[in-house]
Design a protein around this nucleic acid. Structure first.
Lengths: 114, 114
DNA sequence: TAAACTATCTTGTAAAACAAGGTATGGTTA
DNA sequence: TAACCATACCTTGTTTTACAAGATAGTTTA
């Protein structure tokens, strides 16, 4: 059970979501994340995450020949990965709602008298 | 300069935002965060953050008597804190937009040909 | 054969997110 | 007055994350 998860694994969730759309390999993923606005994720960030996700059995990989360069390791979601992605989406909704509330309303929770 | 910040310090930003609305002390902050939906932040998370924020000169504190119990350390934003909060809001907007795009559209960035 | 590009992985560091537990103050009640 | 409880703050230590830097290797083209 993951209680205190909220903040963790935001990129993880994004990566799962991108993989769900269709097989991708790491190098490609890096440029997709970049195109989406995550300028700051280098391969030093991405590959360790992919390895971790696979270790946790959320994604699986197959090697395929590249048109240019070494073989590509294509990733796809496992069943557990699908579940985790669904779970992440809930967590993200909760998180973004919460943060937006705080940022917009500032600090007044007082009207919330039970 | 903080380039690769995106993910870090989301609670930091929320705390700054709550403090901006009016002086709070740590114990109170914990319950406010909880009321907002951050169930998982214990004092073991919050106090170290407050100490860090003060060390970074983003917030300042004054001690005041409590109605019951030891003195309360009330925090307020410094000028740098105001700036950092504004900065965080931009980062948050960028982050949440990016994540929402990925989650909603999945992985198709291709139509984005410049 | 060397450069340039594609592609993956490893190492090491710093900081973040916490759980757990410790300290201190003041009020209530047995 | 001792015990207890609630308030309030802080510290220690662990695990995980984000990441920079760089190593390794295949493929094309000059």
């Amino acid at each position: 059970m993951q209680t205190t998860q909220m903040l963790k694994g935001i990129i993880d969730g994004c990566i799962l979501s991108i993989i769900q759309e269709g097989e991708v390999y790491g190098y490609e993923l890096a440029s997709k994340l970049d195109a989406y606005g995550f300028e700051s994720f280098s391969e030093g960030t991405i590959y360790p995450i992919l390895i971790r996700l696979q270790k946790d059995n959320l994604i699986q990989s197959t090697l395929k020949k590249s048109t240019a360069g070494p073989k590509r390791k294509y990733y796809s979601l496992t069943e557990r990965g699908e579940e985790e992605l669904a779970d992440f989406q809930k967590r993200w909704n909760h998180l973004s709602t919460t943060v937006n509330q705080i940022l917009n309303k500032g600090g007044s929770v007082d009207e919330e008298r039970k």
